[in-house]
Simulated assay, not measured.
Amino acid sequence: MATYVLIPGADGRAWYWHRVVPMLRERGHAVIAVDLPSDNTAGLAEHVDAVIGAIGDKASAPGLVLVAQSLAGFIAPLVCERTPVEQLILVNPMIPAPGETAGEWWDNTGRAEAARAFAAEEGRDPNAGFDLVVDFFHDVPQDVTDEAMSAEASGPAEALFTEPWPLQTWPDVPTRLLQARDDRFFPLSFQRRVAAERLDGVPVEDLPGGHLVALSHPVELADLICRTEASP
């Protein structure tokens, strides 16, 4: 049995994982879904503290696995420096480089160009501005979308985007990268390139769904999370 610690992305709410949590528990695993700080001045240290606090006395439990969505790719590796972790699973992640801020990551990786190219491939307007529904919720069930939209507005702390990522190397923890094939924000081909550049030797395991894959394809995501080894 594993203990899965689910860290949300920019939205910061444990709610993001609410469709995946019961599926992992049905498989006999312990699950901790983390709420991240809502304070706009909370930086990387405060976000790591929030994850550590949520783990609590489970820190000494065997089989601790961090599952990090999107922006949490900047946070989860720092948690690995604070507590023993058996595995780190990145989902549609931002993969940081040493000394890079989350604000710099976008231009450094060429994400915008990749997203425009993917839009053109799909027959969408590559020059259209960001649209929350089109880019994030395009494959999320309507009732789940409605619930998300009715919640109080939340978002990442500005401080997260200005602090350099402090690690010089990726933590010595077995790492997997799960990427949704229909992610319009971080296209699959883009993630394969960035992973090759920044996570040498870590394969990209793909699954159906868009950027909010825990909301749109929770069954497939839970199945893939529970695999003990990366797909060939």
Rank of each mutant, 00 (worst) to 15 (best):
T169K: 13
W170A: 00
S154R: 14
T175D: 11
W165L: 03
P166M: 10
L177Y: 07
D182N: 15
P171R: 01
W165E: 00
R181G: 09
E152I: 01
A157I: 09
L160H: 03
E158R: 06
F161R: 06
S150M: 12
E163Y: 13
W165M: 01
A153H: 11
T162G: 12
P164K: 05
L177D: 10
A180E: 07
T169R: 12
P171I: 00
F161L: 13
E163L: 12
R181K: 15
A180Q: 04
Q179K: 06
Q168G: 15
F161V: 06
P166W: 06
E163G: 10
T162F: 07
G155N: 05
P164F: 09
Q168L: 14
T169E: 15
A151D: 08
W170V: 02
Q179E: 09
E152S: 08
S154Y: 08
P156M: 07
P156Y: 12
S150W: 00
T169Q: 15
E163V: 14
A159S: 10
D172K: 14
A180H: 09
A159N: 03
P156I: 11
E163A: 12
P174S: 02
P156R: 05
A180W: 02
P174H: 02
R181L: 13
E158G: 13
E163F: 12
W165R: 03
P156F: 07
A153L: 11
E158V: 01
A157Y: 05
P174T: 05
P164S: 11
A157E: 03
L167R: 05
F161G: 13
R176Q: 03
P174Y: 12
W170N: 01
S154G: 13
L178C: 12
S150P: 02
L177F: 05
A153S: 09
Q168K: 14
S154L: 06
A153P: 03
A151W: 05
Q168P: 12
W165G: 00
A180I: 01
E158H: 00
P166T: 05
A157M: 08
S154C: 14
L178T: 04
A151C: 01
P174R: 12
A157W: 06
P166N: 01
V173C: 11
G155A: 08
A157N: 09
T169F: 01
P164R: 02
E163Q: 15
